[in-house]
Design a binder for these strands. Structure first.
Length: 245
DNA sequence: TACCAGGTCCTCG
DNA sequence: CGAGGACATGGT
């Protein structure tokens, strides 16, 4: 079995299934995505919104913002496309960078409205690569946000790379810490079965593990990947900050 | 108190 | 290209 699969199974054993993406329902934020047969348009839009709002921001801050949007019935393409930008910015204040993000949400909604009659389903009903190119062409949507939307909202198989992925897999010795987004994504695509459920679960586990053990300042005691890690940080108290990578 | 958090865009060299 | 800065809140 490939080493990368061993890492996946070790994470599953340690944390169990994560069941991402977190979605809200009736204005409440649920920590887990309940097993539904298919996302509604509203739920898909909420994932897209969450993907944009969580750019370099903690998810708890994003949850507060999404609850505000829910309260104001703004998880809706038509309404988002029309709302005053400064008003939207205040509603999503908790998610940080609120002026930028308000602009990005409105641009995203307007794009759907102008090109797909506001239908996310229509937009997602495109080949993965075309969808990805279109997402990347939008202002404010870079590779991670695009891939999060493709994987968690459109449910198509692309591996999401984020700061956590780089941190964990460089520490494991799979790559350099400054590897490019594209290169690291290629590593996962070449080594894993092309299965959106696998990509979904794996990435969610990476986030879980990065928050629990493989933090910026790693806590290597009892780390479930300890035996597979090249950097055990056994003497972490003696390390300088720059050695944490 | 300072640092951190599921990035992206812009500007410069 | 790539490095560096701007964007901003809330939790620890």
């Amino acid at each position: 079995m490939k080493k990368i699969n061993q890492v996946y199974h070790a994470l599953i054993d340690a944390y169990g299934k994560q069941g991402w993406w977190p979605v809200t329902d009736k204005g409440e934020v649920f920590p887990e995505y309940k097993k539904r047969k298919a996302f509604s348009e509203k739920q898909m839009l909420e994932v897209c919104i969450g993907a944009i709002l969580t750019q370099n921001t903690s998810w708890t801050n994003v949850e507060k913002a999404i609850m505000q949007l829910n309260k104001n019935k703004l998880i809706n393409v038509n309404k988002l496309a029309k709302i005053d930008q400064s008003k939207l910015a205040q509603l999503i204040r908790s998610s940080g960078y609120f002026n930028q993000k308000a602009e990005r949400l409105i641009l995203f909604a307007k794009y759907l409205l102008n090109n797909y009659s506001g239908s996310i389903n229509k937009f997602f009903n495109k080949p993965l690569q075309n969808l990805r190119q279109e997402l990347l062409s939008m202002h404010g949507i870079g590779p991670e946000t695009a891939d999060s939307i493709i994987l968690y909202a459109a449910k198509k198989p692309v591996f999401v790379i984020d700061a956590y992925t780089k941190r964990i897999f460089s520490r494991l010795g799979f790559c350099e810490k400054d590897i490019s987004y594209h290169e690291l994504q290629k590593m996962f695509h070449e080594r894993l079965d092309c299965d959106f459920k696998l990509f979904n679960e794996f990435h969610a586990l990476i986030v879980k593990h990065a928050k629990q053990y493989c933090k910026k300042k790693p806590e290597c005691n009892n780390c479930p990947l300890n035996s597979k890690c090249q950097k055990t940080y056994k003497h972490k108290n003696l390390l300088n900050k720059h050695d944490y990578t």
